[in-house]
Design a protein around this nucleic acid. Structure first.
Length: 195
DNA sequence: GAAAAGATCTTCT
DNA sequence: GAAGATCTTTTCC
């Protein structure tokens, strides 16, 4: 019991509703170790998803694909989008409840040159979209279910932006739940996918 | 077993 | 601004 409590306490800040977790993830840092190199990036755009939400992969309950989203907060959920792109989520909330936060855009901090090479695009388009983030950081399905406190993929809490620095809008690319405002990004940030 | 939709990105006009 | 690429997962018959 005590070991469970100590393990989860590191992620207490994500054991909350998906929207709160999403806002708290703005400003946090993703650290990825890839081919012996340390890449890092700051989260600047996110979207919240949970079990009660028709747009969420977990809306109809657990499946082999979305199982990781039902883990405890602080795990990774990676899925394949449109059969082509990988997308990274940070699992939020208590274990057994399918909620998480899609990482839509990041600002490269360490390893920008590597990210540019992996993407093959100009700086402005290197990580301004969920599929782009995963390509730049080399994240794929092998990392789904990975605990974000250990290499090669870690997450560290960052300085939380002030409320007036966060813009809230509807989410992108949805057909269901499209009118619910659950997308959050840093106001005026150049790496945000769309304004 | 088949069909449709999908938390996207790129290219072309 | 619009449409094509591309393929897995899930749902429905």
């Amino acid at each position: 019991v005590s070991s469970i409590a100590s393990t989860s306490s590191a992620w207490e800040w994500l054991v909350t509703d998906a929207e709160t977790a999403a806002r708290r993830l703005l400003g946090a840092t993703i650290v990825r170790e890839l081919d012996g190199e340390r890449l890092s990036a700051r989260i600047v755009e996110v979207e919240a998803y949970d079990q009660e939400d028709p747009a969420s992969h977990t809306f109809r309950g657990p499946t082999p694909r979305n199982a990781a989203m039902f883990l405890a907060a602080g795990h990774a959920y990676v899925y394949l989008s449109y059969g082509i792109h990988h997308c990274l989520n940070v699992v939020a909330g208590v274990a057994g409840h399918g909620s998480g936060v899609l990482i839509r855009a990041v600002e490269p901090v360490d390893g920008l040159e590597t990210m540019l090479a992996r993407r093959g695009t100009p700086r402005k388009q290197v990580t301004n979209g969920p599929g782009k983030v995963c390509q730049a950081l080399g994240i794929d399905l092998a990392l789904t279910g990975h605990p974000l406190e250990q290499p090669p993929l870690r997450l560290s809490r960052g300085p939380e932006p002030a409320d007036d620095e966060i813009v809230t809008t509807t989410r992108i690319g949805l057909t269901k739940g499209a009118d619910t405002p659950r997308r959050f990004y840093l106001a005026g940030h150049p790496d945000v996918s769309r304004r």
